[in-house]
Design a binder for these strands. Structure first.
Lengths: 230, 230
DNA sequence: GATTATTTACTTAGTCCTTAGTAAGTTCCA
DNA sequence: TGGAACTTACTAAGGACTAAGTAAATAATC
């Protein structure tokens, strides 16, 4: 399927009929559709979700969908681009505070993720469906992960320059590890939330990271409640 | 699709026509089919692969496939159960050597994985397609991850009992973290092998782990070649 | 040890449903 | 009055799966 059908693929990404500016109603409609598609793609994946399901969910016909997005892949692209909150929020968090403090923010990040399991799942599912070059959004995920690794590596380099992080770790490799751990923990949590607590697991991993990376030993927070710094 | 069609689902798992013992030829054929299906499922997932594709690959008809496995889900089950080398090899490695030594074996595990990227990908893709309860192999993956976490936690407990690992880490949480990191690194490697080196990343993570968990400082292996112990 | 009966391992032909996508027309708002 | 935002009606292909029959190997019987 992916191999021979490179010829005459339908126009992807933009609408069929429309050529000028969209109206407010249209934009609102598109937001609804993206929201519905996000939910369904998170459940059954891109391949496991039919256009008819999405259409029914928003109360429109199938060609109505295609009017807005041109093709199923166009809809996927819209979902992937619009629902990009994850890496944006992630980058904002890490860029806002530098060095070690960024690691201390990881539990907050975990809390936010737990409140929107749909988003975490959407990300995990779509990533797995786009591992192959040739998968429709492969390049998007490659770019996103390169960006995220760069942001995390930058955060570590900052900590190293400031002297609060040990200098003998490679920022690039540590960035791979950190993103890997976060993804992997999320994946185990999504699979088996009764056995794997997302927040506790990430908190513990953050403690490990700080213990391993900090040059100064952290104030022992075992038994010491949060009001220490107040 | 997953919601309403609980009624009259076709018999899953076993063959339609056959009721007694299979012949040697049949078993060989089934192995061929499982191998082909594994490759195709790794590429496009269970949902993205048609029975016709699998059939063509092994040179059989579609009903020929169904004779052997009863349904598409039956074929998936066979793939998942037969291609279970990963966790078995993993458990064997970890159980063979206890404690810290198991962590030192992680790079070897990484090397094996790199030689069979198809298997790693199959695992990642099928996991993501079975995150939901109700997905056909959801329970299988839940069980597998529980087993793997138990094996890793046991290895850590052993290290702690022997005194070579620090006692103030939770074996259960550390097991989650280790499996998460391994999966996450593999996932980034599968997505972008040019930027992410599986073996180097896992080696570095193993070093971090040993540095963090060992009670005795390890002999600095930087610059010291392997012939030290010879 | 040849014949008969049974079973495995298929094939051909066909069912019925779902799939993404098209063509052409309609409504409604700016 | 022209274009955005739809709908109805349709196509062609692919989806898993069934029914019924056949070739060949195996097992049972005389």
């Amino acid at each position: 399927m992916t191999e021979n059908s490179d010829a005459r693929k339908p126009a992807v990404g933009r609408a069929r009929g429309r050529t000028k500016a969209p109206t407010a109603k249209g934009e609102e409609r598109r937001r609804e559709i993206v929201a519905a598609a996000s939910e369904l793609f998170a459940r059954a994946g891109f391949r496991g979700t039919g256009m008819a399901e999405v259409a029914q969910r928003v109360g429109i016909t199938e060609p109505g969908l295609l009017y807005h997005f041109g093709s199923k892949e166009g809809l996927l692209r819209a979902v992937v681009e619009h629902r990009d909150l994850r890496s944006q929020a992630f980058a904002r968090d890490i860029a806002a505070v530098g060095g070690l403090q960024a690691l201390r923010e990881m539990p907050a990040f975990a809390h936010r993720n737990r409140e929107q399991p749909g988003l975490a799942k959407l990300f995990a599912v779509l990533l797995a469906e786009n591992l192959d070059p040739g998968d429709p959004e492969h390049d998007f995920f490659v770019r996103r992960y390169r960006e995220m690794r760069a942001v995390v590596a930058g955060m570590i380099r900052e900590g190293q320059r400031g002297g609060e992080m040990r200098a003998d770790v490679s920022p690039e490799l540590k960035a791979i590890e950190i993103l890997a751990a976060l993804d992997g923990i999320a994946s185990q949590w999504l699979l088996d939330p009764e056995e794997v607590d997302l927040v506790i697991s990430i908190e513990e991993y953050a403690r490990t990271l700080i213990r391993d990376l900090a040059t100064d030993p952290e104030p022992a927070e075992t038994g010491a409640p949060e009001e220490v710094q107040g």
